[in-house]
Design a protein around this nucleic acid. Structure first.
Lengths: 364, 364
DNA sequence: TTGTTTGGAGTGTGCGCACACGCAAAAATT
DNA sequence: AATTTTTGCGTGTGCGCACACTCCAAACAA
């Protein structure tokens, strides 16, 4: 094997030109007659030439600087995941001349996002990976990068507005849809199902509203068709409510939650927490011994894992934070270094995590 | 970045020797005085030298031949997965001088395994990746490879007997345990649960017996402790039975299966198929409209996906066949080419697949 | 003594490619 | 017609490393 690897030299010989000429058509450096150009191109096709990337990066001493803009991982544990992933990618890609700089902003302060995004832009990077949690404020930056010709990749939150090179992350809608299934599955009787947002600025967060839409749609499609041949064994007059909880430190958090749990009428059978903060709800269920209420949330944070093992949380959906960082960086590398075409959408799987399969996802 | 990459030239300068000398200590070629050797080693540590793998493979024209021994993918669709995965790995590793040859044997014929394994051994490969479905017949080969110093990696089936370089695949026991959870989850009433083996030589297949053990243990640990403080809200006098079905083409397959399904007394609530052949059972459930019987099986084969979408199969556990092939090859490459230490056990996740998250696993 | 081996080091070439440079012929300008 | 400029192409060097080769002096044998 490998003996038959086609080199530039082979193309040159077959086309009766020098390696310099082949190099010129390969990189569109001009200074080649159209006639020769076509011949070289043909020979390349015939021999099925594939450049040797190792020799290429070794030969050209070019380096690439990538900027990552994401929430500070010391303020919210979730963001440690993407951080780990992009660090891993950075390590693997270092020999290819890729360097990564992280600009972290505060999840709760819009202006810190603007400041960091501005700093990243001013560093004039060769590519940008960004988690655009703030919808409105992101748009202007996209426009600027697009104009400057800097490729940028989105992760975690998908904003279609200005075409990014790629989006890496979950399909939020389907993610909510799946949550509906998990919260409903195996429950023989109809009831009320709650979708809880914790300390989220819903209006400015595409991400979360799509999850809610998916969740509601799951129940909608469950309802038997009006004129269906035979109505299913059970009807589904389930009631879906959603609530916008404040920061858990706020006393009204407990107040609002307890009011819901104490409402005997409601027949509350399941709660879906739209972010990775299911561990904020879990203690209330555990304290009141509400094993009858199904709890579904996101991500394998330490606290979530605790309540999963205690059977308070029933399912977690893994958003694959680490993979998001990893593949985000790789999307940029594929474009810049390897010159491969990059898929505009890279949906990561919706991993269903239970107590029984947890261990194989934790260190991943 | 990357400007600070340490080269062997830098070490040479710092140790006041030539690059040739550094090369000699790097590869233990001898012909270096102990004194100088120590100095060079020290400088390497101080500068935190990491060899540039690209330059290394480019410089040394060494190639590696890997042999893969696995069931023929044209005879059983499952094995297309590992095949795809190892092909992908082979493509990525080709520039590193790695070539892969596949020796495929027939799942049902022991002697074809022996023949292919023999052929692979005679080709004197630099490394071997093997799916040792036949327990007894595998042992002799392991011993031989060990003696010849050929590193070998197991996948799909774990046999601890003679330490392989690594095992890549699922934890079969935990896989069965999870299947127990999935088949039982949300069913309010106790009943009978069936574990079905289809056309398997149980006695010679570690793999499948471990799955059964895990499955049974799930139910065992569900039963409330004898002297527990308070017996749970429901007791679990579930009954677990297992059955050894013949090839589905055999008329007794249908006979045995129908007898089980028609037994009103049994209260059959769930079936766990221990291999990827859940699609052989599904038609019987569908024909008899037995929506009350939970069906859990393995792998995203086309036929399984069909019945998952029809709600006949409730859950599939993805054995990640593609990843098994991919990481199996990489384990060998890590050892041979990159000289990294290889984990002796690489457990792949137990992906839970439902209709709702299926799409993100299919093309993976 | 003169050869011969051997230990301990340095030098040189090539891997496949990028890129700067050189040089002649053709085309454009004066 | 003499010049500059442009076009079209070939050559040479270096990237970091492996590996064969060379060289020299000391140890040893004859």
């Amino acid at each position: 094997m490998e003996k038959n690897a086609v080199r530039i030299k082979d193309i040159a010989a077959k086309a009766n030109v020098s390696v310099g000429t082949v190099d010129r058509v390969l990189h569109n450096r001009g200074r080649v007659s159209e006639e020769v150009r076509q011949k070289v191109l043909l020979m390349m096709q015939e021999l099925d030439y594939e450049p040797n990337m190792m020799a290429r990066t070794l030969g050209s001493n070019r380096t690439y600087r990538l900027a990552v803009i994401q929430p500070d991982h010391t303020l919210d544990p979730y963001w440690q995941g993407p951080r780990d992933g992009l660090d891993k990618a950075a390590r693997e890609l270092k020999p290819y001349g890729i360097g990564v700089t992280v600009y972290s902003y505060s999840l709760t302060q819009v202006d810190s996002f603007v400041a960091q995004a501005t700093a990243a832009t001013l560093s004039r990077p060769d590519g940008i990976l960004v988690a655009p949690l703030f919808y409105r404020e992101s748009l202007a930056f996209f426009a600027q990068w697009q104009q400057q010709g800097i490729p940028y990749v989105l992760f975690n939150t998908y904003i279609a507005e200005l075409q990014p090179l790629s989006y890496v992350g979950q399909d939020s809608y389907q993610s909510g849809f799946l949550a509906g299934k998990l919260v409903r599955f195996g429950q023989p009787q109809p009831g009320t199902f709650l979708i809880a947002h914790i300390a989220e600025d819903i209006a400015n967060s595409v991400h979360v509203t799509q999850k809610e839409r998916g969740f509601r749609d799951y129940f909608a499609q469950l309802a038997p068709a009006r004129n269906g041949p035979a109505p299913g064994p059970r009807e589904h007059p389930d009631k879906i409510i959603s609530i916008d909880l404040p920061d858990p430190a706020d006393p009204s958090f407990a107040r609002q939650l307890n009011r819901l749990l104490d409402d005997e009428q409601a027949q509350l059978r399941g709660i879906f927490v739209s972010t990775s903060k299911a561990y904020e709800i879990a203690p209330y269920l555990q304290a009141n011994r509400r094993e009858d209420i199904r709890l579904v949330g996101y991500d394998l944070l330490e606290k979530n894992i605790h309540f999963l093992n205690e059977n308070v949380i029933d399912f977690l959906i893994n958003q694959n934070p680490k993979e998001q960082g990893y593949w985000g960086i790789f999307a940029l590398a594929d474009r810049l270094v390897f010159k491969k075409k990059v898929l505009p959408l890279k949906y990561l799987p919706l991993d269903i995590i239970t107590k029984e399969n947890l261990q194989y996802y934790v260190g991943k």
